[in-house]
Structures are given as C-alpha cells and as structure tokens.
C-alpha cells in the first residue's frame, strides 16, 4: 500500500515526461515538413545564385555541380558592364520609373481617399462603389484603347504612359487608405476645423501622420509592382537606353548568344535591390499582401 502511495508522483512525472516527448516529436515533425517544403522554394533560388557564379561549362552538367569551382565573382563584372546589359543605366531608369509612380500614386490616392472618407458630397457612395468594382476589372479590356490613346498623344517610346496615370489615383490604394482614414476619430479633425484649418492642412497635419504605416505599405507595394513590371515597359518603350532593369534583362537574353551564367548574374542583380528592400521593410511587404485579402474578409 505504501509503495502505491509512492507510485503516484512518479507516474505524474512519467506522464509529464511522455507529454514532453510527444510535443517534442510533433514539433520535430512539423519542422521537418516545413524544412522540406521550404527547400522546394529555396533550392531554385539557390540555383540562381550558384549558377551565376559558375564557369559557362559548369552550368549544365551531370551530376549537377552545387559548388562552383572556381567561384567566378567576375561573372558579375562581366554581366553588369557589357554594353548589352548596361546595369547602372538600367537601374537609373528603373529608379526613375519606380520613384515617380510611387510618389504619384501615394499623393493622389491619399487626396482621393480623404474625400471618400472625411468629406460629404453628392454621389460619393456611388462613386466609391464604382471604384470598388474597378478593382476586379481585368486589365485586358482597357489595354488596346489606352495604348491607342497614348500613341495618339505621341507618348509611346517614353515613360509618360507608365507614369502619368499613377498621378490620378489607383483603386486599391484609394480603398485601403479610405479604410484607414475612416477609423480616425472625428474629434481630431473637428478641433482643427474650429481652429480654422482647411482640408489640405488637416489632411497634411492631422491625417497623414496617423496613417503613415498605411502609406508605407502602399509605397512598398507599388515599389515592388513597378520594379517587376514587364508588360508596361514592353509595349510602351522601344529602346535599350530607356529600358528599366527587367526589360534590359529580357533584351540581354534575346540579343546575345545565351551565356546562362552571365544571364543568371544579371537576373540576380535585377532582383537584388528588391530583396534588400524586402529585408529592411518586410513588415510592410507582408502587411500589404495581407491587406489585399481584406476585400475578401
């Protein structure tokens, strides 16, 4: 009997130990599943890095070569300085494109969102419904007439068709900023009204500081979308000297007899600035994508 009394705490300990082992195993299995899946996503990317550092003869081998010998850092020098891929010039074009559209869309969408959320005027809610419905509008239906319009304006062959529309607002950004602005208490802006501030002052001094995270989200999101935009530059630009990086990369592939190692170096260089930005501002990237799902929730 007395030995039974002693048994109880031991059993408890054993039970706790077993539970610990079980959570250890399930967690281990979870990690294993996650590592295996993550490998599927990371290995292709790793191959981009590895191939960019190989000699040309080592790109396609059987068995595959994982560690290039020698590691040719000079591929980057070669790829980024050939006249076929003038990296710095392309980068300058990309930055111009990205910065201009980001400024355009952030400023215009903020102003429009302010009207939709803080001002009352006739037809506002109908107009907002139209705005929401355009978010699902497939780009294909406006593509050709828009091109013809820009052609008629003699804007094809330059950045105007790619940048000017950004200054007139973008449906998703307007929607998102409006959602943020409607949460701001009216007392804050009413106080400013009483002090004699006009709407521009209120927007700039009261609203903008409060929605800075949302503004960063749409900036980062637009930055990424424009950096990676291929179709717009493809149809509106027609000279290497005007191209942004992705178009330059496309031209590099078509103009040259393909040297895959250099092409991979150029590819990595094209996405590197974006990846760097991602690691600095990961929060805003993730929030931005998450918020695109907001419409569904």
């Amino acid at each position: 009997m007395s030995s039974d009394a002693l048994q109880v705490p031991i059993d408890m300990r054993r039970l706790r130990a077993r539970k610990l082992v079980r959570t250890f195993i399930t967690k281990g299995l979870s990690h294993l599943a996650l590592i295996a899946t993550a490998a599927l996503f990371i290995i292709p990317f790793l191959w981009l890095v590895v191939t960019s550092l190989k000699e040309e003869a080592q790109v396609f081998t059987d068995p595959p070569i994982w560690i290039p010998r020698p590691i040719l850092w000079s591929n980057y020098v070669d790829a980024l300085t050939t006249p076929a891929f003038p990296f710095l010039h392309l980068l300058k074009n990309t930055l111009f494109y990205v910065i201009m559209t980001t400024i355009g869309t952030v400023v215009s969408s903020t102003i429009v969102a302010y009207a939709f959320s803080r001002l009352h005027f006739k037809g506002r809610d109908t107009l907002f419904m139209i705005t929401l419905s355009t978010m699902m509008l497939p780009g294909i239906v406006t593509l050709i007439p828009t091109y013809i319009l820009f052609r008629w304006l003699n804007w094809v062959g330059g950045y105007a068709p790619l940048i000017v529309p950004a200054f007139f607002g973008a449906a998703f950004n307007i929607f998102l900023l409006r959602q943020f602005m409607t949460t701001i208490p009216w007392e804050l802006t009413d106080a400013a009204y009483v002090d004699g501030a006009n709407d521009f002052v209120i927007l700039w001094k009261v609203i903008v500081p409060l929605i800075t995270p949302a503004l960063l989200v749409i900036s980062v999101f637009n930055f990424m979308g424009t950096w990676n935009d291929f179709f717009g530059p493809l149809i509106y630009l027609d000279d290497l000297s005007e191209y942004p990086l992705v178009m330059g990369l496309y031209a590099f592939r078509t103009q040259h007899s393909i040297q895959w190692n250099l092409l991979m170096a150029a590819s990595l260089a094209t996405c590197f600035p974006l990846i760097a930005l991602f690691f600095v501002a990961q929060r805003y990237f993730i929030e931005g994508i998450t918020l695109t799902g907001l419409k569904g929730a």
């Binding site: 899946t37 993550a38 996503f41 990371i42 292709p44 990317f45 981009l48 990424m224 950096w227 990676n228 291929f230 990086l245 992705v246 178009m247 990369l249 496309y250 592939r253 590819s267 990595l268 094209t270 996405c271 974006l274 990846i275 991602f278 990237f285 993730i286």
Partner: peptide
C-alpha cells in the same frame, strides 16, 4: 515561401 514572389517574371 515568400522570397520567390520577389523575383521578377523575366528573371
């Protein structure tokens, strides 16, 4: 999982 989404379509 998200990293590949940063690579532009051409690359």
């Amino acid at each position: 999982f998200y990293l590949p989404g940063l690579v532009p379509a051409v690359a």
